[in-house]
Write a protein that binds this DNA or RNA. Structure first.
Lengths: 230, 230
DNA sequence: ACGATCCTCGTACAGTGTGCGAGTGCATTT
DNA sequence: AAATGCACTCGCACACTGTACGAGGATCGT
């Protein structure tokens, strides 16, 4: 059996006197936020809960299961609007921005996206609502899924490099003049690139990324809308 | 100093009598293709080259550097067309499909995308050519970068879950009836989702993903094109 | 023959996930 | 009250990881 997931098997009975799965997952998310995916180890997590490392294995079968739980936990932070009230374009747009914000808040999410199936209740809830949005928009049949896949692909694909950039820059936030110089040297032989690097040097990176995200989002929404009228 | 990269420092002089960086990187790519990102360890890679694990550290400062090199290596597999000959839409479309194919061929790529800066020569070459494509299309200023970011975001965001799905399904390729049943149980309480799952059950997954990719790609290209006319 | 330089690798250390089995405390049954 | 059983904790051990260090070998210019 190649395919397993926490969500496809019965959990242990809750309500016992010991620790709970919830607080373990909450602590895991905390630790992940503070130290990143590599910073989460069973021993460290155990220490944070004043427990032995192997105690956690009573509540969770493997570390991967724990990651699945933490993963779904943050899916719960996405805000989904009702397309019947605000219109499908606004609803989708709000969801897209919300996804981006959640990813920026939990940078380790990007690492998990490509590795875990999104079968948790929170992830399914978001997917369910998104399907509704695109049905309200007028999509039918497989196109509903296609449109949803396109939207999430864009958001994840756009935000993932943004996160990589943030963490590469470390805590300083902005890129230093020195490092911009070395990058310029690296792209020296690519004429088109030099232009781009020089342009970006004069701009506020954070605002630039916001602009870039909105530009692409509007494009994607326009492109999807066009599928409806033909 | 938070930011480092192989590409921003001088490499060791090549041409010595010993092993070369090239064959190490080539072996690393082989091993990655066969066993995935977790399957690559310095000891295993050393064994494959009939060398001690720590010998490799003469050519490469850390394992992360090696990954950066392997990463850029496969960027070299992308095929870039000349937009002056085939038109920008075709050129971009060919590149997008090529990116997807390369990712499917080297599934570990998806894991690295969010973690490494793409500063290698091959990655820069692709970025350079893509800039050209969008300039030929008519984009100016920052919009050139925005359009490029949108396109790559879509391709990576679409292909990454596809890879995750493939590897979750393991070698069987297709999803079994049994597992489709368990998934159906997981989504039982989300009305919109059930419909989607049932629909997909009757379709060939591989063809479906191809369709989905093309649907989104056309949408993105249409959306970008619309930015030009306003 | 003698360095110097390039290159290899054994050993060691701190860290990882987790299987196993012994131990603790509480609840229920006898 | 005693005994049984269950829920839970955790120390130890194993196989594995990346890589710092330093001792050795090989090849070359002189």
């Amino acid at each position: 059996m190649a395919f397993t997931s926490v969500w496809l098997r019965e959990p242990r009975k809750p309500g016992g006197p010991g620790r709970s799965r919830e607080e373990i997952v909450a602590a895991a998310v905390e630790l992940l936020d503070e130290e990143g995916l590599d910073g989460l180890s069973m021993r460290k997590l155990g220490a944070r809960l004043s427990a032995g490392a192997t105690s956690l294995y009573w509540y969770v079968a493997t570390k991967d299961e724990l990651l699945e739980l933490a993963y779904d936990q943050v899916w719960g932070e996405m805000t989904v609007a009702d397309p019947d009230k605000v219109g499908w374009r606004d609803a989708v747009s709000v969801l897209a921005h919300s996804m981006r914000q959640v990813m920026l808040r939990h940078p380790w999410l990007a690492d998990l996206l490509g590795r875990l199936p999104a079968l948790g209740p929170n992830a399914l809830h978001v997917a369910d609502r998104m399907r509704r949005m695109f049905k309200v928009a007028g999509f039918r049949g497989s196109d509903v899924d296609f449109a949803g896949a396109t939207l999430t692909a864009y958001v994840f694909g756009m935000t993932t490099p943004e996160i990589a950039w943030n963490s590469a820059m470390g805590e300083t936030g902005d890129d230093t003049e020195e490092m911009r110089a070395t990058v310029r040297r690296a792209v020296a032989e690519f004429p088109e690139m030099i232009e781009g690097v020089d342009m970006n040097a004069r701009a506020d990176p954070r605002a630039m990324r916001e602009l870039s995200f909105d530009f692409g989002l509007v494009s994607v929404l326009d492109g999807l809308e066009r599928r409806l009228t033909t």
